[in-house]
Design a protein around this nucleic acid. Structure first.
Length: 222
DNA sequence: AACCAGGACGTGA
DNA sequence: TCACGTCATGGT
């Protein structure tokens, strides 16, 4: 068992299944990984991945509820909404001017997709406003593609456990997970969700650390 | 009242 | 490349 798999086991045992990606739409069943179940849920995940950039999920939920009321997870409706109206709808999520542009930019790409033309990581990264974490979130949670999502909590944790150096970049950390963790979509989804749950508890306020994973530090050579 | 949140981009060096 | 400023609302 690799060090990262041990961490997964510890986190899962402690927190239990997280069941990401959270979806607000009616009928969503928590802890159901086989999402999205339809195109509106898929679009909600994609938009949520953009809206949650450096933003508390509670704020994103408010924005998503506004969008839902305006039927903006329907492609024809979203296509018609003005930039200004979109901005006011997503205002609670913060950075609303930038994010409205980002949603529109993503939607231009989204419209070109179909069953035979699925999104690619390179394609997503070419969109203004979509960086590596957002691209991987979209691929993993909206399109069930085994791309590991690395967020700031994860980097803080691995740094604290001396498994990486502080200046490791996104790709290096991603590769670490993807070489140690079997390529499996539900596993990638659950692991990332668990890392965020753990990060909120122990890697939000400085000084970071003091978490129960530290007792295994000697098992995680750098 | 400062600090933080499930980042990404633009800029100057 | 890379370090740093900017974007913004809402909860603690």
């Amino acid at each position: 068992m690799t060090p990262l798999l041990q961490i997964y086991q510890s986190l899962f045992d402690y927190y239990g299944p997280q069941g990401w990606w959270p979806i607000h739409q009616e009928g969503y069943h928590h802890l159901n990984y086989r999402i999205p179940r339809n195109s509106k849920e898929r679009l909600e995940i994609c938009f949520g991945a953009i809206l949650t950039q450096n933003t508390n999920w509670k704020n994103v939920e408010k924005a998503i509820l506004n969008m839902f009321k305006l039927n903006l997870f329907d492609t024809d409706t979203f296509d018609k909404i003005s930039l200004k109206n979109l901005e006011s709808a997503i205002k609670p999520s913060g950075y609303f001017v930038q994010k409205a542009k980002k949603l529109k930019a993503f939607f231009d790409y989204y419209k070109t997709l179909n069953e035979c033309n699925l999104p690619t990581r390179e394609g997503l990264l070419a969109i203004w406003g979509i960086g590596p974490e957002t691209a991987d979130s979209i691929l993993l949670y909206a399109y069930q593609t085994p791309q590991f999502v690395v967020d700031s909590y994860t980097k803080r944790l691995l740094t604290n456990l001396n498994m990486i150096s502080e200046k490791s970049n996104y790709q290096q950390i991603k590769q670490l997970f993807e070489t140690q963790i079997p390529s499996n979509v539900p596993l990638y989804q659950e692991f990332h969700a668990l890392l965020v749950a753990h990060g909120k508890n122990f890697y939000s306020k400085k000084p970071y650390g003091g978490c129960f994973l530290e007792i295994h530090q000697q098992d995680f050579p750098q």
